[in-house]
Amino acid sequence: MAVIQATDSDFEQVLKDNDKVIVKFFAGWCGSCRLFAPKFKRLSNDDKYEGVSFIDINAEQNPESRKSAGVNNLPYFAIYKNGELIEGISSSKEDSVVELIEKLNS
C-alpha cells in the first residue's frame, strides 16, 4: 500500500477512514527523517502489515496534527486504532518502528 500524505485539514478524516494507522511525522530539514523514508515505504508494502495504513505528515507545516500526537522530536511515529492515539515514539531505528506496528496487530 502506498504511503498517504496527510495535512492538518484531512488528518482527522484519514484516522476515521482507517482502522489501524501508523503516522510518520517528519521535516524537510531532518536528515534522519529522509533516511527513514524508504524504510517506511518498504514497510508499507509488506504483506505482513496489509491492514495498516501508513501516513506521512510534515510536522512543521501541520502543527495541529503534531500537537495532537505529542510529537517531541523527529522522526516521530504514532499509532492509532479506530481514530484513537495508542502510542508514539521518537526513533530512527527500524526495529522500534516495527515493534510499534506490531502493537496494532495484537
Rank of each mutant, 00 (worst) to 15 (best):
I79H: 14
L43E: 06
E64T: 15
L15A: 10
Q5Y: 03
M1E: 08
E94A: 08
R66E: 02
L15Y: 04
S106T: 13
E99K: 09
K48V: 05
G88M: 09
A59D: 10
E94C: 13
S65V: 07
F54Q: 06
C30L: 05
N58Q: 04
S65L: 06
G83P: 05
A78V: 06
P38L: 02
D56H: 14
I4P: 07
A2N: 12
V52L: 08
D19C: 04
E102Y: 07
F36R: 01
N82F: 00
S44E: 07
F36K: 05
E87S: 11
M1I: 13
D17E: 13
Q13L: 10
F77W: 12
I55P: 03
V97R: 06
N73G: 15
I79C: 12
F11G: 03
I57M: 02
C33G: 02
A2I: 07
K41C: 04
E60M: 10
S90A: 15
R34E: 06
S96G: 12
V21W: 11
Y76M: 03
E102V: 13
A37Y: 01
D17Q: 11
K48G: 11
E84R: 14
N72H: 14
I89F: 14
V71M: 09
F36M: 10
F25L: 08
T7K: 01
T7H: 08
S9L: 05
V71A: 05
S92A: 12
Q61P: 12
N73V: 15
K67D: 15
V23N: 00
K81C: 13
V21E: 00
I79T: 06
V98M: 15
G70E: 03
V71G: 15
E99M: 14
F40T: 05
F26G: 05
A78F: 01
K48I: 07
G28N: 07
F11C: 03
P75V: 03
Y76A: 12
V14Q: 06
F11H: 04
K93N: 08
N73S: 15
I79S: 10
A2T: 12
Y49R: 02
D95E: 13
G83V: 10
E87G: 06
I22W: 03
F77K: 02
Y76K: 08
S9V: 13
F11L: 02
V71W: 00
I79V: 09
L85F: 04
G83R: 09
N18A: 06
V71Q: 04
S32R: 06
Q13H: 15
L100E: 01
V14C: 06
V23G: 00
D10V: 14
D19H: 08
S44M: 09
N18W: 06
L35A: 15
